[in-house]
Computed example of a mutant assay.
Amino acid sequence: MTERLRDGMRIALKNSPWKQIMVLPGTESRSKSNVMLPDGRTDIPLAFVEIFLRTQEHDPHAIIECKRIAGSDTHLCREYVVEGMDRFIQEKYGENHAIGFMVGYVLAGVPSESADGVNAYLRRVSRSVDRLAPSDISDGTWQSLHARSKPSMPIRLQHAFLGFAGTSASRT
């Protein structure tokens, strides 16, 4: 699913004014420079060509983490948080970023049920402060704001839950 999303993003960029963005393949990453072995694998790293050419900075400029999700599946909701959101919160991804991106592939139900399922998990584990709230960016998207170990560097995550045509998950 992630490969198809990546391919679609590349096709969309060919016909847009954002041609200076590179949609890179998933890569192993190190959360800190003193970490010797990769401790994460980003699903869709994005890089801006101009910034890369100017700074020779090899780290991605934005990261999209992708997870399977269904609001009624407590295991998938937990994985979305623990193996997705927490990688940003714990600075495994985007340590120097103020924003990160999550995509949920909705396997059953509708996108809003997936957001509700993630929020239900967060309430069960006493993390209501990390809840997803509707985003003002577009319909069908959510956002969350999280404190990190550096108090001055919180991270805002933008969440999109993608349904598939021909299933109940395609309804919003």
Results as ranks from 00 to 15, higher is better:
127 R>D: 11
160 A>D: 02
128 S>P: 00
122 L>P: 00
129 V>G: 01
108 A>E: 14
155 I>G: 07
166 G>T: 13
106 V>W: 07
159 H>R: 04
160 A>F: 11
160 A>V: 03
107 L>S: 09
126 S>T: 12
160 A>R: 13
107 L>T: 04
161 F>W: 06
155 I>K: 01
166 G>E: 12
155 I>C: 08
164 F>L: 13
152 S>T: 05
162 L>D: 09
124 R>W: 05
139 D>A: 14
134 P>A: 10
162 L>W: 09
156 R>H: 03
110 V>S: 08
110 V>K: 06
154 P>E: 06
104 G>M: 15
105 Y>W: 15
115 A>P: 00
123 R>Q: 10
153 M>D: 06
160 A>P: 00
152 S>G: 06
133 A>G: 07
131 R>V: 13
138 S>P: 00
156 R>W: 02
166 G>Y: 05
115 A>K: 01
109 G>E: 07
150 K>E: 09
142 W>Y: 05
137 I>Y: 01
133 A>V: 10
121 Y>H: 09
135 S>T: 04
124 R>G: 08
130 D>Q: 08
131 R>H: 06
162 L>V: 08
165 A>Y: 07
129 V>N: 03
159 H>V: 15
152 S>C: 08
152 S>W: 02
119 N>C: 12
128 S>L: 07
119 N>W: 06
131 R>Q: 13
159 H>Y: 12
122 L>V: 07
135 S>W: 01
137 I>T: 03
137 I>K: 01
112 S>I: 08
129 V>S: 05
108 A>T: 11
166 G>K: 13
110 V>C: 05
151 P>T: 13
136 D>P: 00
125 V>H: 01
104 G>A: 05
117 G>Y: 03
129 V>R: 03
162 L>S: 09
122 L>F: 08
128 S>K: 03
113 E>Q: 15
125 V>F: 06
156 R>F: 04
135 S>M: 02
111 P>K: 10
138 S>W: 13
162 L>M: 12
149 S>F: 04
112 S>M: 15
149 S>H: 02
120 A>R: 06
161 F>A: 13
145 L>V: 11
134 P>G: 05
117 G>D: 06
161 F>Y: 03
158 Q>G: 11
105 Y>L: 10
111 P>W: 09
152 S>V: 15
118 V>E: 01
124 R>M: 12
127 R>N: 11
141 T>N: 01
153 M>Y: 03
124 R>L: 12
165 A>L: 08
129 V>P: 00
160 A>G: 11
143 Q>K: 01
155 I>H: 01
145 L>H: 01
128 S>I: 15
122 L>D: 04
133 A>C: 10
106 V>Y: 04
144 S>E: 07
123 R>H: 09
107 L>G: 04
120 A>N: 04
131 R>L: 10
109 G>K: 07
153 M>L: 10
107 L>Q: 09
157 L>T: 08
104 G>W: 10
147 A>T: 11
161 F>N: 05
150 K>M: 03
110 V>Q: 12
113 E>A: 09
158 Q>W: 02
149 S>T: 14
150 K>A: 12
135 S>Q: 04
131 R>D: 06
150 K>I: 13
111 P>V: 11
119 N>F: 12
110 V>P: 00
112 S>T: 10
118 V>I: 14
153 M>K: 03
120 A>D: 06
152 S>K: 03
134 P>Y: 01
125 V>A: 13
130 D>G: 15
108 A>Q: 11
142 W>M: 15
145 L>F: 07
149 S>G: 09
109 G>A: 12
145 L>C: 05
118 V>L: 04
